[in-house]
Structure formats: structure tokens, C-alpha cells
Write a protein that binds this DNA or RNA. Sequence first.
DNA 1: CGTTAGCACTCGTCATGTCTAAGTGCTAAC
DNA 2: GTTAGCACTTAGACATGACGAGTGCTAACG
Lengths: 337, 337
Amino acid sequence: MSEPRKLEVLRAIVEDYVHSREPVGSKALVERHHLGVSSATIRNDMAALEDEGLITAPHTSAGRIPTDKGYRLFVDQISAVKPLSQAERRAIQTLLEGSDDLDDVLERTVRLLSQLTNQVAVVQYPHLSRAMVRHIEFVLLAPRQVLIVLIADTGKVEQRVIDVGQDLGDDAIGGLRTRFLKSLSGTPLSLLPQALPAVVAACEPSRRHAAQALARGLDALASSTREERMVMAGTANLARSNVDFPLSIGPVLEALEEQVVMLRLLSEMAEDPRGVTVSIGRENPYDGLTEASVVATGYGPGSSAKVGVLGPTRMDYPTTMAAVRAVARYLSRILGP
Amino acid sequence: MSEPRKLEVLRAIVEDYVHSREPVGSKALVERHHLGVSSATIRNDMAALEDEGLITAPHTSAGRIPTDKGYRLFVDQISAVKPLSQAERRAIQTLLEGSDDLDDVLERTVRLLSQLTNQVAVVQYPHLSRAMVRHIEFVLLAPRQVLIVLIADTGKVEQRVIDVGQDLGDDAIGGLRTRFLKSLSGTPLSLLPQALPAVVAACEPSRRHAAQALARGLDALASSTREERMVMAGTANLARSNVDFPLSIGPVLEALEEQVVMLRLLSEMAEDPRGVTVSIGRENPYDGLTEASVVATGYGPGSSAKVGVLGPTRMDYPTTMAAVRAVARYLSRILGP
DNA sequence: CGTTAGCACTCGTCATGTCTAAGTGCTAAC
DNA sequence: GTTAGCACTTAGACATGACGAGTGCTAACG
């Protein structure tokens, strides 16, 4: 019994099953793939694969389907990343060019990726850790209420309303604004927590309290951008692959709606040297996603932000991986160095 | 055959069917509701209701279920708006208080409403037509690229990056900013288009071109907030009521993802004097929603923005209507006068 | 020793048939 | 206008059996 052939059999099973959605038997295998042996031999191989936990039979006399572990082996060792078709490459290029607003780019990206893969696409907003303070604005909404706007040089804007705890006039808020802006302009967001106390200390004592509140607000803003947000598209594709989620797509939708879950999932996915990381079925930490797989990769500076696709474990991994990788590359290019 | 009793029968059918998901027959009706007549009489009434197109039988010997028209009559004439339970009122109050950031409020609102009704909740961002310019900021990202930030007094912030077509320095952009701000601060967003040309005209000729571009950008920002956006929650509830969408929830998810569709739908729903508008099944203009109903109402100043719930036609209208109405009221109160 | 052919055995699926409960529509009587 | 009674329709549940796909095992083969 040869090892290489066993792997070949596994590959064939995964491919056929992904294609047909039906358990695949030994006879069908030898017909569709020209392995030079008989079905009986394949049966022996399959029995071995089953012993190793790579495939399983839904019931006594049905074909075999891959287990999570089988998919894992397939992804890690067997599959070759498919190159995208020319049409797909062009689609990516045309769709993502001609727009420089970050929101807009990400929006288009998810739509494109979900169409390309026929699955749910997710894009995490880029980390701002490398971003720097471009501008800070304080706007008085009421005597004690201030709207803080933090603008990063990446074009990202965050705002929040806070209560400063003491009445302020336009002059006071203007003074504070100038002071904060002078000291912090150009500061990397990641260094904001260290830089803020000095600014507060330099303020006139009478405004110290407000300054403190503003500093807290800015800190929260900077870190809230670290908490990250995401955009999503293609949830309707879940419904079509209804069959693929034996239980129901409910839990999956819940996970997607609980953005926190998805964000944690994405950031926990370690970077793979081959460029695309895959998390399969029960490998997912979240209970609702035990029948789902996530294919993701980093993009942009430092590849810190993630872009990915979520679908049923029974998914066309090579194609999906290719699409994700390609989209991430274009995205990185567009978002600049 | 008495008219009032016929209506009573329709009411009973709707209520039972909503409750049980099963076609309801004449015998079950007389048992569960104490109409003082026999099942044979009810049968006559039901035949009449069927002739009028208010109910229908899925097959020869099954009970009846309401048609869209039947639900319509039920909603319009029969149902009484249920008061919310004390617990629900408290939930609304506690959940929506203690937050003044618009995004945050709306986010909480949809979650609450989706939990309250066990369906998909949708909230449209308030129109800014009545909002005024609180602040304008221009930030130079590159010599020709400017980030425009428009802050309204409602706390809403919109931003966009534009190309000004000529190189500008920090001084120039600062001067422009001051000029725009001076002239436009306090201007209602709706009047922005009229106010902008004057500002541009007042600029030094050398910066006229950039000013033009900035004005266009501001105009676009103000109107892009008019185009509206929406927040949504509870899509997972669709999966649970899977049974209620015979076809699939796919088209529904698509409609929800195509926010344009939902926004048009919401804004087309005329204001109902009773405070809540309902659009039932095939009444919906969008093909994917022929098996869905939308319950919506306006909120905020002028009741121009909409908040609503989407679910299967077979829905508990009285309760849903009550929840939507209550949430809209609290929302209006929180967002101020 | 790996490969193969053959065969008994296991199950899921499908078609078929039967039975039952639910429910209707109609008619005749009240 | 209401009711009782009855014949009729039908979906759904259940049992039955034939069929086919597929396996595992054993014995033979190179």
C-alpha cells in the first residue's frame, strides 16, 4: 500500500465531494480519476484513511466524506493554489481601482470577494497602530459636552462625544485644542497613551479637569480603533449553501453579527508562510462555526489587518484561497506602501 | 350569516395560525374560541371568507390560512395594539439611556428591537435636513489631497477625501477652512447647496479652483447623508423562522444586504395615522420579500427617519407593532426635541 | 507483499400500498 | 340563519419490499 497513492485518493475524495456534495465510493473514484488500480485496492486505501481519521462514512454502506482532519491535510499538503482566471483578475483590478476613500475601498472589496467565492466575505479595518495623528478637533456641543474628532493620516476618522465635567467656553476649548494639537500632531497612535499625560500636565490648572477628560477620550478613541471594526458581504450566499449546514445557518449568522467573535477569530489566525491561513470546522474556537471554515490572510502595511472568506467546511479551498490571496494583494497595493 | 362574526372568525384564524403555524380548521376554532355557534356554521363563514379572498386552503382537506389580504384586513380593522409588558418597557428604557453618541444609540436600538420581536430590526439614520453645520475641517493629506470633515450639530460626522486639482500649502488650506467655517457655521445642511457658491466667490482667485472642489465635496457630503444609511440586527432570527419562508431566506438576506432596497422600501411606506405602517407580503415592491412583512414607523424630528421590523408574513402583528411604536417613541425622546 | 476478483452483507432510498385523522361541502331538518 | 349528519378528499404516517451502492473479507494471483 503506497503512501503517495493514499494521498492521491484523499485528494480525489475531497475534490469529488466538494464537487458533488455526495459521499464518494471506491468505484466512482477509479472511474473519475485514472488511478491505475482497481476499486478493491482503493477500498483498502480508504479503510486505512478512515483508520487515520481523515475520512469517514456517514453510514455503513455509503461512500466516504472527508473529516476536518482530512480537509486539513488536503489544505496543508495536497492542494495546489489555483491561479485565478484572467477574467477574475480583471474584475479585481477594475473594481478596486478608482476610489481612494477607505470605507469605499473596503466596501467594494467585500462585495467583490463574496461574488468571486460565492461565500461570505469579511474585511477587517486596518489597524491604526502605525498611523499618526493628523488632526484633532474638539467641538463644543453643550457647555460640558465635547465632540472629539481624531483624524489619522491614513484618512481614518474616529469621533466620540464625552462629558468634560466642567463648563467650558469656546475660548477654553479652542485653547485646549491648540495645545493638544501642537503637542500630539504627528504622534503615532500607538504612543498616544504615553504622550497624553504630559499634555494634560502642561494645561492651566483651571482646565486640568477638562483636559483629563479629553485625554481619556482620545485614548479611548485611539484604542477603539485598535479594537477594530469590519465589513461583511454575501450573507445571502449562506442560504444557498443551506444544505451544507446540517443544523442551520442560524448560529453562523449569529457569529457574523457578533462582530467581536469574527474579529477575534480573524486576529487569532496565525500568519501562514504560504500567505493564506485556513481554519477548518471544529478548529474554530467558536461553537457556532463548527461546520464552517474560514480562509483569511493579512493585507496592508505589516499584514496586520485581515481579509477573509467564510463558508461551509465543504468548500473549494484552492479556489477560495487563490481569491483571498489575490484580493489581499490588490488591496495592499491600493492602500499604498 | 353575521358580518361581525365573520370578522371574529378571521381574527381567530389569524391568531391561531400565527400561534401554531398550522392551517386551522373549523372544529379547532370553536373549541379554542368561545364563539357561540357550531363548527358547521363556522364552515359557512369560512367559505364566505374564502370567496372574499381573505383566507385560503393549502389543499382540499386542510384548515385555512390567512392570505395577504386577510392579514391586511386583520391589521387594519381587527387587531388592537397590545400594550407592552412592564418588563419590556423597562428593557427599552434602561437599554437606550446612558449614551449620546448617535451611532451607539442606533446600534443599541436595533439590537433591542430585534430581541424584542425575535425578528430582523432595521433603523434608518436620521435625515440631516434639519441639522446644521457645527464644524468644518479640511486636512491636507498630500499637496492636492484634502480630507473634508463635516460635523453636524446632531453629532453626526461625515468625511471624504477629494482631489482639489491644485497644490495647496498648510496656510492656504487653513485660510480656506476659516473662510468656509465663518460663512457656513450654523447653516442648515439643506441650505448648503445655495450657500456654497457665495463662499467660493469670496475666495481669492488663486484659490478659486480648490475652493470649487471643496464646495463640491461638502455638497456631496451633505447630500450623501441625505442618501441615508441604516443599521440592522437580528438576521439570525431569520434562520429560526426558516419554515416560514417556503422558498428560502436567501432572497430576504439579499434584500437586506442591498441596503438601497430596504431604504427605498422604508421611505416609501406612507405614514399611517395610527402611527405604525405595515407592508404585507406581495404588497412589498421587491420580489424577494413577497413572503415577508415590514412593520415600520417614523421617529425623530418630523418622523422622517424610519425604524422597523422585518419578518415572515405569518407574524404576530399586534406585538410587533407595539414594540416598533414604543421603541420609536423612546428613540424620538432620546434624540431630543 | 501488494493487488485483485468475487461475494455476502448492510443500509439508505424509492416506489407502492394501506390506513387514519382532519377537514371540507352539501343536504336536509330545525 | 343555524345545525347535524354524512359522503368525500387528502396529507401524512407507517409498513413493506425491491434495488442499488458500497463496504469488508477472504482467497487467489503475480
